[in-house]
C-alpha cells in the first residue's frame, strides 16, 4: 500500500463520484434503450443525436418542478429521508478497488479511494442503511400507499440482507480477508484446472454463492422482479408517492447508483475485479475490464426487468427464508469442509 498525499485521494474520490453520477444518468438512458429494443420499440430518440441528451433534459426538468411537502407530512424526516438513500449509495463506492497501486504521471497512485480492512462489510452495511431512507420517507409522507411500500421494503431488505451477507462467507474464507483489495489480489493468483491454468476468480470456486449473491443483490436494490416496495400497479409507486421535484429524483439517483456499486462489488468479489488479459502490464486495461464486467451485470438487471413478472409478496418471503437460506448455509458448510479436506485436516 502506498501512502499518497490526501489531496490526490480527494481528486480520485471526486472523479469517482462524478463518474457515478454521470454513469447513473446514462444508466437510465441505457435501460430505456434496452427495454425499448426488447419490446420492439425505439426508446428515447428526440433529445439530441439518438436521444443521447435525454438524461440531461430529465435532470433539468426535475430541477424546474415544484417541491411539494404534504400537509400531514413530518417535515424534517420528509426533508432528509431521500438524502440518506443518495448519500449511502454514493459512499458505498469508496472501497471498490479499480486496480492496485500504479506508476503514472511520475507518481505512485492508488486506484482505489480507501482500503478499509472491513471493506466488504462496509458495502453491505451502507447498502442496508439505505433502506432507512426508504422507510423513513414512507412513514413521513403519512400516506397509506407509502407506508405499505416502506414496510414491504424493510421486510424485504432485512430478509435478503441475510442471504447477501452469508453468501459471501465462502469468498471471505478463501481470501482470508474482508478487505476488497486483498480479495482482488487473491484472485490474481493462478489456479490449475487439469491442463488449463486460469486466474483464481472466485466464481469458479463459489458458483452457488455467486448465484445466491446475484439474486439477493437484485432484491436488495429493490429491482424487478423484486420491486414490490414500488409496485406501480397496486401501491401507485409505494414509498415515493408523495415526493416530487428533485427530492423525488434522489430516490432514483440512490437506486441506480446502488445498482452500479453492487455491480462493481460483484465484479470485484467474483470476477477478479480489474483482472484480465494484459491488465498486470497496463493499468488502464484493468479499469476497462472492471467497467465491462459491471456493465454486464447492469445489462443483466435490465434483462431481468424486461423478462420476469413481479413476485407475489408471500412468494418473495418464501424464496428468501425457505429456499435461499438453507442453500446459503449449505454453501458455507461445504466450502469449509472442502477447504479443510484440501489441507488434509478433515479426518
Amino acid at each position: 500500500m502506498n501512502d499518497q498525499p490526501l489531496w490526490l485521494t480527494f481528486i480520485f474520490a471526486f472523479l469517482i463520484m462524478n463518474v457515478l453520477l454521470i454513469g447513473m444518468a446514462y444508466m437510465t438512458y441505457f435501460e430505456r434503450k434496452m427495454l425499448g429494443a426488447m419490446q420492439d420499440r425505439m426508446g428515447p430518440t428526440r433529445t439530441g443525436p439518438k436521444g443521447l441528451l435525454q438524461p440531461i433534459a430529465d435532470g433539468i426538468k426535475l430541477l424546474g418542478k415544484e417541491d411539494l411537502i404534504p400537509r400531514a407530512a413530518d417535515k424534517w424526516v420528509f426533508f432528509f429521508a431521500p438524502l440518506i438513500v443518495f448519500v449511502t449509495a454514493i459512499v458505498g463506492a469508496a472501497v471498490i478497488p479499480f486496480g492496485g497501486t500504479i506508476n503514472a504521471f511520475g507518481r505512485d497512485l492508488n486506484l482505489y479511494i480507501t482500503d478499509l480492512n472491513v471493506g466488504a462489510l462496509f458495502v453491505l452495511a451502507f447498502s442496508s442503511i439505505g433502506v432507512y431512507g426508504i422507510i423513513l420517507g414512507a412513514w413521513a409522507s403519512s400516506n397509506r400507499y407509502s407506508l405499505l411500500g416502506g414496510l414491504r421494503a424493510a421486510a424485504q431488505v432485512v430478509s435478503y440482507e441475510i442471504i447477501l451477507g452469508l453468501s459471501l462467507v465462502g469468498v471471505f474464507m478463501l481470501a482470508g480477508s474482508l478487505s476488497l483489495r486483498d480479495i482482488m489480489l487473491e484472485q490474481q493468483t493462478n489456479l490449475e484446472l487439469g491442463p488449463l491454468t486460469v486466474k483464481n476468480w472466485f466464481i469458479l470456486s463459489q458458483p452457488l454463492a455467486f448465484i445466491l449473491f446475484m439474486i439477493a443483490a437484485v432484491a436488495e436494490t429493490n429491482r424487478a422482479p423484486f420491486d414490490l416496495p414500488e409496485a406501480e400497479s397496486e401501491l401507485v409507486s409505494g414509498f415515493h408517492t408523495e415526493y416530487s421535484a428533485f427530492r423525488f429524483s434522489f430516490y432514483f439517483l440512490g437506486e441506480y447508483i446502488s445498482m452500479i456499486v453492487v455491480s462493481l462489488f460483484a465484479a470485484t468479489l467474483f470476477l477478479g475485479g480489474p483482472s484480465g488479459p494484459g491488465s498486470s502490464d497496463h493499468w488502464y486495461l484493468g479499469i476497462l475490464y472492471i467497467l465491462i464486467k459491471a456493465i454486464v451485470f447492469l445489462f443483466f438487471y435490465i434483462w431481468l426487468r424486461a423478462t420476469l413478472p413481479r413476485f407475489r409478496y408471500d412468494q418473495l418471503m418464501g424464496l428468501a427464508w425457505k429456499v435461499l437460506l438453507p442453500l446459503v448455509i449449505l454453501n458455507i458448510v461445504v466450502t469449509a469442509a472442502i477447504r479443510l479436506a484440501s489441507d488434509g485436516l478433515l479426518f
Binding site: T9, L63, E66, D67, F86, V91, L116, F246, R247
Partner: peptide, 30 residues
C-alpha cells in the same frame, strides 16, 4: 486516515445533494 476519507466523502455527497436541493428551490416554482 482511511475512515477520515470516508467521512469527507460523506460530507461531499451531502454537500452535493444540498446544492441540488437549493438549486431546485431557486429554479422551481412555488
Amino acid at each position: 486516515e482511511n475512515w477520515l476519507i470516508v467521512g469527507l466523502m460523506t460530507t461531499a455527497a451531502i454537500a452535493m445533494a444540498m446544492t441540488l436541493l437549493i438549486l431546485n428551490l431557486i429554479v422551481g416554482p412555488s
